[in-house]
Design a protein around this nucleic acid. Structure first.
Lengths: 198, 198
DNA sequence: GACGGCCATCCTACCAGAAGGTAGGGTATG
DNA sequence: CATACCCTACCTTCTGGTAGGATGGCCGTC
């Protein structure tokens, strides 16, 4: 009860995994219909157009991500530990192939051909993720737990870029381990070494 | 003369820019037909199937990349300078929007839905780029020009991932400058600081 | 409790256009 | 004449999307 029709959730979940595999133009209503076990036309009842479907999908994805960041903030106080958790989350997703790519990272690569409404959501995710990472790094640097080599903002952008690139490499090599190979040293480098200066 | 039919080159060039914009499923023969000013059917004369087209496109891209690495090797001896040049090349491409993404990086993101023959070429590019970067970093470290924090291989993978991620961020933000913001410190970090050890 | 209306869900059937691709013919250039 | 190139015309399948009907649960009213 109370969960309004699990069908639309099924559709969203299915579409998400299809997008993660092949992007916006890499799937069709027919594909979803096959997996979910519902007729093509019935999908239109839940999501009148493909744009509607993907827009709400990305919007929900963003909500989840935002919620994840917030809860992480509550559970773990150490900034480095939070970054480790974030990287570890993706490492696990990639390893078990459950969701081996960030939906927004994948869609961002096709931004020029994306419907505008979807593009806006995707860009918003990048901004919010970047802002979170920036605040994390800023705090860690201020408290002396992290050592930054440039501004928190620049370091956050570099961190995000490296994580996204690591997803791509893991996919290209067909080897989940490469994600850890790339992100491991990334985190290690941020860890403040025992102070040497006076 | 001697350049066998510029038409097929036009088709390849057009397809390349279309792929860079939206990936394998983001363009059609009709799109090429519009731009090149040739009928759809005529494209099939040069490239019987879409797979043929994209496979040769990626193969040619790889040749160019390989040639670029080789000529860079001849022109510039300093490893750091070579990496700088490589990053600078992409920074320029992104800035003038002439080719704001690596064809193989974009296609790699859709690997699961790519025709196998295309996927093989894409993976091969990743391996060759990684190998080149590895040799570059290994040499730089051996000669004391670069400081690595992990193995040359791991550092090369991290470098490649960061560059690809930086392309993605530049696209997501719609801001070419972000590429330099990410790759600048990356190169800076590799530069060996004036030796302190005895 | 029975009744009729309302609405959500899902269906079959259909559509127009775009997809990749084929058949076969014209021209011209070696 | 053979071949390379490009054309018109056509085909099949897939695409996102629509129209309209069947089912069934839930509502207030009698």
């Amino acid at each position: 009860m109370s969960n309004l029709s699990t069908t639309s959730d099924d559709i969203l979940a299915c579409a998400r995994s299809l997008i993660v595999a092949g992007g916006y133009n890499g799937f069709s209503y027919a594909d979803i219909s096959d997996v979910v076990g519902i007729r093509k036309a019935s999908i239109h009842h839940h999501f009148p157009s493909k744009v509607d479907l993907v827009r709400t999908l990305v919007a929900r994805y963003r909500e989840e991500a935002e919620a994840g960041m917030a809860s992480l903030e509550l559970q773990v106080s150490d900034p480095l530990e939070q970054l480790r958790f974030y990287a570890g989350y993706w490492e696990a997703c990639i390893a078990d192939a459950s969701a081996p790519f960030c939906v927004c990272a994948l869609l961002a690569s096709e931004l020029p051909v994306l419907p505008e409404e979807v593009g806006l959501e995707v860009r918003a995710h990048f901004r919010s993720l970047s802002a979170w990472l920036t605040s994390m790094l800023e705090r860690g640097a201020r408290h002396g737990q992290l050592q930054l080599m440039s501004t928190p903002r620049a370091e956050a952008e570099a961190f995000m870029a490296t994580v996204h690139g690591a997803m791509l490499s893991a996919r290209a090599y067909g080897d989940p381990k490469i994600f850890g190979v790339v992100t491991g040293p990334l985190l290690e480098r941020l860890r403040a070494s025992p102070q040497i200066r006076p």
